[in-house]
Amino acid sequence: MSGRPAVVQDAAIALIAVTAVAAVAVLGDNYVVRLATTLFLYASLALSWNLIGGYAGYPSFATAAFFGLGAYANGVLQAAGLPFAVAWIGVAGIAAVCGALLGFCILHLRGHYFAIASLVVGDVLREIVNSWTSLTGGGMGMNLPLIAFSADMQARFFMGGFFGLALAAFLVARLIDRRPLGFTLRCIEQNDTAAAMLGADTRFAKSAAFTIACIFAGAAGAIYASWVSYIDPTDVFDVLYSVKPIIMALLGGIGTVTGPVIGAVVFLGLEELFWRNFLETHEGVLGLLVVLLVLFLPDGIHRLLTIGRHRTWRAAAS
């Protein structure tokens, strides 16, 4: 950590990022813009998952549930006549409430049981969306109103939207990392019994991390729904939306601020490579990547780069 105040650093990061994105918007072709949009979507999801999965060490598979919830809540709110901007904010509120409630219900579970419970939430929501045809269109999917820009402008608009979300997620993660909440979450990850015995309100800390993660996942789903303008249950509740952020965080280094961002960049690069070269088997290749990653690089690329500085840390962990 340098001596400069965090606010100045944050402002500098934001400024550089905004400039880079503006440059892409003006100079980039549609392929580059689409790539950047996906990158910011991935980074948002990975950063949000990292709060509960990385810092607190709770292996959440609920990202897809909240991504889908956000997408459908956006669709329903807009179908009720709300403008998209209001709908997105509404979705964030809905995701916050649902996340807090769900967290209250399942955060007392540990390990495998928490993982399964969080995974099942997505399945239950998908079934509900599938059967509540009058509201959601069921398996037929749901159309969302297009935003009245030209196609090129739209692409850049959504890139900006996801960028804003990713930047917010990054700054929130950075804030939490430096505040007592981040420290508490790290302690929970290492030994939650000990943390509670010292007086830490572990339930509040876990709920806060989980709820914030749900808000970002839900907002990402909402923007995604507006972007693609057509959603169906198998797409937005796809379990890969839960798994990809985990892979990204693992790639970049879990429980760090920059890890998920680095992971999102690397993952997107690999994914582009697979999509192009292994059209039919790209999921299998993704699986292979996951296996290799877990076996040979469980601490992420991040750790590989900073190995010298953290030697004692590694010695302790092994």
């Binding site: 292996p59 993982a115 892979i247 299998g284 292979l288 296996v291 877990v294 076996l295």
Partner: peptide, 18 residues
Amino acid sequence: PVLITLTLTFGLNLMLNN
């Protein structure tokens, strides 16, 4: 930890299923 073992078998499953 659970996260690692679960992710590994998930990856293996992606391969087998694909």
